[in-house]
């Protein structure tokens, strides 16, 4: 293990990201009705992806989901775990198309690409991958599984698009290098 600094930091980032994911999954929802919540947890792989790349983001999606189930006791459903893994991989791919949050680089062009990828990624992960695994593992009617998946895709996409973009722009502004500050 040569480049130890980066490896340890990545491991810690994935661990902290997963812990954030688990906390938000269990406690950080935006409630719509009494028992239905929009979760903000998927913002975490987005941000981890922006800082550390898609693979750490995917791990946050997978391990974070595992931890969320572990502290919440919801049972482990691997059809959803795989969906999470892929979804996090997609939405965490920001540095592949030039986003550099640490240098304050996130613009409208990035926001559009991110939004498209986020919706597509969600559709593929929860609209195809998860129902596919659900069908294999638990059987059931593909039509209904797909229909249920669409609800998840839609609500997830909305949160990721709105919250994700707001947070990404805000973080980029925070990290932007500041020159020529004058007291007025």
């Amino acid at each position: 293990m040569k480049n130890n600094k980066n490896i340890t930091q990545q491991i810690v980032a994935i661990a902290i990201g997963s812990a954030l994911f688990a906390v938000l999954m269990n406690y950080g929802g935006i409630s719509i009705y009494t028992n239905t919540k929009l979760t903000t947890a998927y913002i975490i792989p987005v941000i981890i992806g922006a800082f550390f790349g898609p693979i750490p983001a995917a791990l946050v999606g997978f391990i974070g989901n595992f931890l969320a189930d572990t502290i919440g006791g919801w049972g482990y459903w691997f059809d959803w775990s795989f969906g999470n893994l892929f979804c996090a991989l997609f939405i965490g791919s920001l540095n592949l198309y030039g986003v550099r949050i640490r240098e304050g680089i996130y613009n409208i062009k990035h926001a559009i690409i991110f939004s498209i990828i986020a919706v597509l990624g969600n559709a593929v992960s929860f609209g195809l991958i998860t129902p596919f695994f659900t069908k294999i593992i638990h059987g059931g009617e593909l039509v209904i599984t797909l229909a249920q998946a669409q609800v998840a895709v839609l609500s997830n996409s909305v949160v990721i698009l709105i919250v994700g973009n707001i947070v990404l722009f805000a973080l980029a502004r925070r990290y932007k290098k500041q020159n020529n500050l004058v007291e007025e």
Binding site: R173, R174, Y175, K176, Q178, L181, E183, E184
Partner: peptide, 10 residues
């Protein structure tokens, strides 16, 4: 007041 337009990060 004199810094009112400064970003928080600085």
């Amino acid at each position: 007041y004199s810094m009112r337009n400064w970003p928080i990060s600085v």
